[in-house]
Write a protein that binds this DNA or RNA. Structure first.
Lengths: 346, 346
DNA sequence: CGAGGCTGGTGCAACGATGCACCGCATGTT
DNA sequence: AACATGCGGTGCATCGTTGCACCAGCCTCG
């Protein structure tokens, strides 16, 4: 089914069909338009995307590069972004970097080679240098879950929750409950948001007058490579075991994200402790499972749906080149969701 | 960067570059080949996929349509399928049907219009009629998590765990422990695998000599539309509440999948019962969280990695048209993983 | 009456890669 | 000498769509 066949069927030229298809039908006889529309219906014609893209250089696919679809948090982002995109006739191509910087770059390269001009990148990396060449060539980039940094390309849009504030909320919640020996559990602080969350944790301590030097244990495990998300739970579990081996184990634990927090809970249980009683645990993200777990998990919620919608909107307006070319940062407000995993120290 | 520029740089014709790129370099001077390779490197040339596809009608993208990326089970499939595909230079386009048959068909249509000739479909539907027209036109389809049915297209490949056996293993495990009042919790039995799992449950009861008529409660909630996967957990939670309201609540519960099982556990906890002591719960899938939950969840494992690899292999061999055109069914063996959520009735 | 403007279209040359048919040359065969 | 064969490449038409440049026919106006 080509545009030529439709044209023949309707008794017009391919150009005319193309004009109709591309909204250039101002000065077209209603009768002609109907003949074409009928022909399209009759033949079940759909434009060939490859040809269209070859010709125009544009397309309606955006890329989404996430660290790990194994983490329900990213699954949720994929869902929401896809919904937003779908509503406007866009498609989402999902790529899973497994937090491997090289894979991340390869994916962005591939997307670009595929003619994808807009990418939502959930990067693990503080520097976006590895994708700069493409940004210079016109790739529209939205960094998700990563606040903007010095050295970022001027056109970059950053969308993120305020990680520092979120983490501070979590920490403050624990100190408000009376905890004084706190720990922060995370993989390598190799990404911007992790650093931010750590900063929020420290700020929370300071505000409560807890001396970081003596009362904080922050077993930050792994090097920059050891960085997974499914592994986040394993990491949490191992970290918990390590913390329990201390002379004075912490009574409150802030985890880098919910998956990690669940691992911590598991590890605490391994050690015979009861979460929400012997030890308090706070997560980050508010994945669906936070409310299913036993005990239900106190956590910091990211307004995912809004963030995903914003990511799409930003990208779209730039792809249409109707939008601004200047980059910007959108910082969303996190919200503390208190559940059963936190309580006053016993 | 076009093939023409590479050709000029290397001092050959575009055809020659194309020949090299497409493995037709048998009779090419090693020296020529090197000149071309150097030119490619120097210019950072990557073939334009749209042009290539327009010309050949082929491409290296496969589609993956899943019911819900919100469920980590499907996230895991996406990960493994992508790994397998990536290793061979293929891409995976992920689509989220939310178990909406119409959306499912629309996606498959879209993929086809995009020139995608191979799709892994995790369908909610017993009938594949809605995609038959495309299959007749040459779409290669792999049905995942769905055994083959009468009326399926001849070319269809089905990949699934043996759901009936898995479910029977789960049920048997409970009866072996001494449970006699069992329940099966599921959304509408609107998909093939759900029906199969229910069948396995009934078979398990029969084998243990438990009279289904008197001792089984199977609150199968919702109509065919109410079918989500994130909602699976909510459904489980609600079902648990309902079961607890019975005069004689069941002591053992088989859930349609892990997310549902976690919901059930949550619901039981709401009712003040302890899972793995007062009530036993078995899930299905063995998602990562099964081993994190408190208590850890007894479940039926699907060999995901192998299944995903098989799906890709099957698809690939058919897309190369080197493989068989005849369809086939691959049924994988499920494995019962016993953890803490099951015990003898108290 | 001829210049200019509007209407409702159409012609055509791209976009970049592909792969069959073909070519000139050197060597071997009858 | 005439013809086949192998070698190392190249020429060219083609995939389906797009959108600028253009055109014929009719109307208007000075």
């Amino acid at each position: 089914m080509t545009i030529q066949q439709v044209a023949t069927e309707a008794g017009v030229s391919p150009s005319t069909v193309s004009n109709l298809l591309n909204g250039r039908s101002h000065r077209m006889l209603p009768e002609t338009r109907q003949r074409i529309e009928r022909a399209i219906d009759k033949l079940g014609y759909r434009p060939n995307r490859a040809a269209r893209q070859l010709r125009t250089g544009r397309n309606t696919t955006i890329g989404l590069v996430v660290p790990s679809v194994g983490n329900p948090f990213w699954g949720a982002l994929a869902r929401h972004l896809e919904s937003a995109a779908l509503a406007e006739g866009y498609h989402v191509l999902l790529c899973n970097s497994e937090r491997d910087p090289r894979r991340e770059r390869d994916y962005v390269d591939e997307l670009w080679a595929d003619g994808v001009h807009g990418v939502v990148l959930c990067s693990s990396l503080p520097s976006l240098e590895h994708v700069m060449p493409l940004v210079e060539r016109g790739l529209q980039l939205v960094a998700f879950d990563r606040t903007s940094q010095a050295g970022d390309p001027a056109s970059l849009v950053s969308i993120s929750v305020d990680n520092a504030v979120g983490s501070q909320l979590a920490t403050q919640h624990l100190t408000d409950l009376g905890h004084r020996r706190l720990a922060f559990v995370s993989g390598a602080l190799a990404s911007v948001n992790r650093k931010e969350r750590y900063r929020g944790f420290m700020a929370g301590l300071e505000q409560a007058g807890v001396d970081p030097a003596t009362s904080v244990r922050a077993p930050i495990k792994g090097d920059a490579d050891d960085f997974g998300d499914v592994e986040a739970s394993e990491l949490g579990r191992a970290a918990a075991a390590e913390l329990l081996a201390l002379e004075e184990p912490p009574t409150g634990i802030v985890a880098i994200n919910d998956m990690c927090a669940l691992g911590v809970c598991r590890g605490l249980r391994d050690g015979g402790l009861e979460v929400g009683k012997d030890v308090s645990v706070v997560g980050f993200d508010d994945i669906v499972l936070a409310d299913l777990y036993a005990p239900t998990l106190t956590t910091v919620r990211q307004p995912m749906k809004e963030m995903a919608a914003a990511a799409f909107t930003q990208l779209r307006s730039r792809l249409d080149d109707s939008g601004p070319t200047q980059g910007q940062s959108l910082l969303f407000r996190p919200e503390l969701i208190v559940r059963e995993s936190t309580a006053a120290p016993s």
